[in-house]
Amino acid sequence: MSVSAHETGKPGRSFRIDLKTAGPLVALIALCIIGYSLNPAFLSEGNIANILTRSAFIGIIAVGATFVITAGGIDLSVGSMAAFIAGVMIIIMNSAVEAFGVSIWTVLLGCGSSLILGIGAGFINGFLTTKGKIEAFIVTLGTMGIYRSLVTYFADGGTLSLNSSAREIYRPIYYDSILRIPIPVWVFIAVAIIGWVLMNRTAFGRYCMAIGSNEHVARYSAIKVDRVKTATYILQGLCVSLATIIYVPRLGSASSATGVLWELEAIAAVIIGGTMLKGGFGRVGGTVIGALILTAIGNILNLTEIISNYLNGAVQGVIIIAAVYLQRGSLRAGKRKAAE
């Protein structure tokens, strides 16, 4: 039988992948039910807004990580990069306040420098992995250490605090809402939508999948592999800088403890969402849900007494392993169910 034009579209494909796609979503819903039954306050508007806002940082970074991982790379430097960008932003804004006084431009200057730093840092990671031909793991392990130590150095081992009057202007970016939805959540939504379109509706996303699935095939198919890979790291840097822009007004400070382990949380969100760590298959939607799951776990542990909040990491770890096991074992599980 030959393939006919009408069969080639979505219908045939969607059913199979739908089961997999739905997995993280089902898990999130289950988590919400558990959360609600343990403490009805879990589904209060305030708490939901809280979960969404907190997941925005990791979520935005994880959307970028989805591209890096899909294209077969990895970026371990995002947490340190966020701390570094936050530190430099604060330094720049503070000196701007000293030189020109406080205005909305102070904050815009800070945001602009954040974007430039993020793009630059991403480019360095991309350039070293592609042109330098060093494994991404090693490059980003190196830059991770560099950024972390730089921010500690700038803060002189302590904390960099934003000038209080500048912070007054900057505050609303984290604390205000538009249409009852907090601004960080809007940013998260925008990044997620743009990411989804980029991954699924543009040549760039297709190229990322092709490179992650087989770099040789990509090269033989006229894809500029180095350029696309570098672009994924730049995108990652951009996402980190956006996350930092909405993170800084939250505490108004940066220290060596800022963004610690964010890289692992971002990677965990990506993996829980169904993207393959070895590359070749990426799901931005899944990543968003993955980030929500991670935040929801911590939130539920905060709201209940059953499990100590100190075990947050352990529960997250179990969830990550279980999620990946279910994705890998989905075929076997499907057969077993069919047999029953």
């Binding site: 393939v3 080639t8 494909r13 040549a203 297709r206 190229y207 999948m209 092709a210 699935s213 087989n214 040789h216 095939v217 990509a218 090269r219 033989y220 198919s221 006229a222 894809i223 070749g280 298959f281």
Partner: peptide, 22 residues
């Protein structure tokens, strides 16, 4: 080397066909 360099084995026909000419 159609398996190593020519085709993406883990995706469907369509992305493979158009990869060169997206």
């Amino acid at each position: 080397d159609r398996k190593g360099k020519g085709l993406l084995l883990n995706v469907g026909l369509q992305p493979n066909l158009t990869l060169l000419t997206l």
